[in-house]
Design a protein around this nucleic acid. Sequence first.
DNA 1: ACATTAAATGCAACGGTGTTGCATTTAATG
DNA 2: CATTAAATGCAACACCGTTGCATTTAATGT
Lengths: 136, 136
Amino acid sequence: MDAPDILKNRGLKVTKIRVAILEAMGESRQALPYSELQKKLSIFDRTTLYRTLLVMIDKGFIHKALEENGDTYYALCSSCTSKVHNHNHVHFKCKECSSVQCLYLQNEIGLSIPEISIETIEITAKGTCSLCRLTN
Amino acid sequence: MDAPDILKNRGLKVTKIRVAILEAMGESRQALPYSELQKKLSIFDRTTLYRTLLVMIDKGFIHKALEENGDTYYALCSSCTSKVHNHNHVHFKCKECSSVQCLYLQNEIGLSIPEISIETIEITAKGTCSLCRLTN
DNA sequence: ACATTAAATGCAACGGTGTTGCATTTAATG
DNA sequence: CATTAAATGCAACACCGTTGCATTTAATGT
Ligand SMILES: [Mn+2]
Ligand SMILES: [Mn+2]
Ligand SMILES: [Zn+2]
Ligand SMILES: [Zn+2]
């Protein structure tokens, strides 16, 4: 299913920038830093990009995978809706190539601390990705 | 041991802003967002604050506990040196009062994924802190 | 195909943060 | 107290987050 259909099915207007964002993120298979989205979508005003990202987060199309050193990495959601947001997966950043990806694992990771009520857990792993391991 | 001694013992010059940062963070017992440090230390130029934070991270005095929505939370290190940085602990943010703290737990949390070599893991938990739970 | 309208867009503008260069000041040392 | 490497303050620039407002556009019904 292509980007315009995805948008229609979820009751969102089909606009150029929304299509462009979905296509850019679908191709890369990885999280994209804001700075790169900005470059790829430089035909659009950055305010429009900013507001579109807000909408697409809210509607469950994308999520923030990582915020680091002022850059924010965005990734496609796997099963979110405007009502239900599920981001209980691991984010991985390669120290070599700086790529960021979502890792969907089998076993859930839980935490329990006395006195504190924990609702969500975010895990960011860092190391060397499979591609960079081959290169070395 | 007070802030000037801590700095001397680690071979750093005792300057006003370094003392002020150590004291501000020591009192709060929590991570402080950059924005708050900026306010508390407004007598200093913000470039100096910026560079001092860089040095103190490098020297193992403080670390970034959380980066979220453009604000960075800094916390005191428990046992880091300029050579060895140990941040394998959990960071917790209360959704009620926005406080951020370091949680030093017993059991280590490990992750293992085929093809990928994981070196470090960062865990951020969110929920309601003990103080806010009492208030509710 | 065309008019209607709510939503989306582009532009301007402001404040905050990250970052660097450079001249000046200061903490440590003997 | 003199020396000097380190730290500081100031200026400057780029980038990001955010908002208001006027204009354009996608969707809908006729
Ligand atoms: Mn993800
Ligand atoms: Mn910490
Ligand atoms: Zn890599
Ligand atoms: Zn709280």
